[in-house]
Design a protein around this nucleic acid. Structure first.
Length: 314
DNA sequence: TGCCAGGCGGGGT
DNA sequence: ACCCCGCATGGC
């Protein structure tokens, strides 16, 4: 067993990013403990960044590595390379995101690998927010790729290979019929030797079609992966939840909802989709609609599981 | 305790 | 291009 050692150190130069907020969003206890976050920077888990909410980071790996490339990747993962001025301008005029963005201008989307982003998408299919994230928590824990960085313990995401070797652990993780889809995604990754840099050069529509070629990956999951892994926002993931919310808030039919959304958010449509789920604490539809009616459209501090607090409970 | 939920594909029209 | 149904779980 090789030992992880610190290979690079530094401090994040923060525009106005709020690292605690960024690390809190849709995260698990083994990747964020309130003080330090752990971010996997490569496909196999050989390179891991540990970053404090104050911005001090260390990059660990078992072998020597190029610091410049990996620090760059860390900035990318934390969303610090994006200029969101245009997104913020729109948000401050928007009834759904105005409150959230004015309260949390330092929010950025934390990205994941394409592989994991697809698994995340599949676990959101036809399930509640909480059920989906519980599945993901179980998957990481059950595959059990625990590692130790000096005196810190954390977990790697399972690799496609791990899944193929032990597909039964997927069912044990409570994924129900989704286990087949996750397994086919794993096979797809091994067979295609996916090159994300090359994928990035393609049009979003083309990437969406490629991802949809995997059985069980449809429009929603493909687009969520574009958002979470590639920071491509022009094609928004719109599920039943968001579709209904759009139709109520902007007074359009559910059929027109997606077009309306894109007409408002343009090239930030996908980012806005995710931001709304955070703003409304991922409440189930009826509660979310009630919150909107009451004008409570920013996260509420409470002792319950929300996108911003789930790291305390899972 | 029966519903039913931030999709999806297959089979109908 | 549509509409409709079943689907594994876990949570209410």
């Amino acid at each position: 067993m090789l030992e992880y050692k610190v290979r690079c150190r530094g401090k994040i130069k923060g525009d106005n990013a709020d690292l605690k907020l960024i690390l809190s969003t849709y995260n698990f206890s083994f990747w964020f403990n309130g003080e330090n976050g752990f971010i996997q920077l490569d496909r196999n888990g050989n390179v891991i960044a540990m970053i404090s909410i104050g911005g001090v980071y260390r990059i660990y790996s078992c072998t020597k590595l190029s610091c410049k490339d990996h620090v760059d990747k860390l900035y990318w993962s934390l969303g610090l390379r994006e200029n969101l001025n245009e997104f913020h301008e729109t948000a401050l005029k928007d009834p759904l995101l105005r409150e959230f963005i004015s309260k949390y201008p330092g929010w950025r989307l934390r990205s994941t690998s394409l592989w994991w982003a697809l698994v995340v998408g599949v676990c959101q299919q036809n399930a509640s927010f909480r059920q989906g994230w519980k599945m993901l928590y179980n998957i990481v824990k059950n595959y059990g790729r625990k590692i130790v960085l000096e005196d810190h313990e954390t977990y790697l995401t399972p690799t496609p290979q791990d899944i193929i070797e032990k597909p039964e652990l997927l069912k044990k993780s409570g994924t129900g019929y989704r286990w087949k889809t996750i397994l086919s995604i794993a096979h797809w990754f091994l067979e295609h030797n996916v090159d994300c840099k090359a994928l990035q050069r393609s049009k979003a529509e083309e990437i969406e079609e490629i991802l949809k070629s995997i059985k069980g990956v449809g429009e929603y999951t493909a687009r969520l992966a574009l958002v979470l892994a590639l920071r491509r926002y022009e094609l928004p993931p719109v599920d039943r939840w968001l579709r209904k919310i759009i139709s109520v808030v902007y007074g359009v039919s559910e059929k027109e909802a997606e077009d309306k959304w894109v007409s408002i958010w343009g090239r930030y449509s996908g980012l806005a989709s995710v931001a709304v789920t955070v703003a409304l604490d991922a409440e189930p539809l009826n509660k979310a609609l009630k919150r909107i009616g009451e004008g409570k459209i920013s996260p509420i501090e409470d002792n319950k599981i929300t996108p911003l607090t789930m790291w305390k409970y899972l």
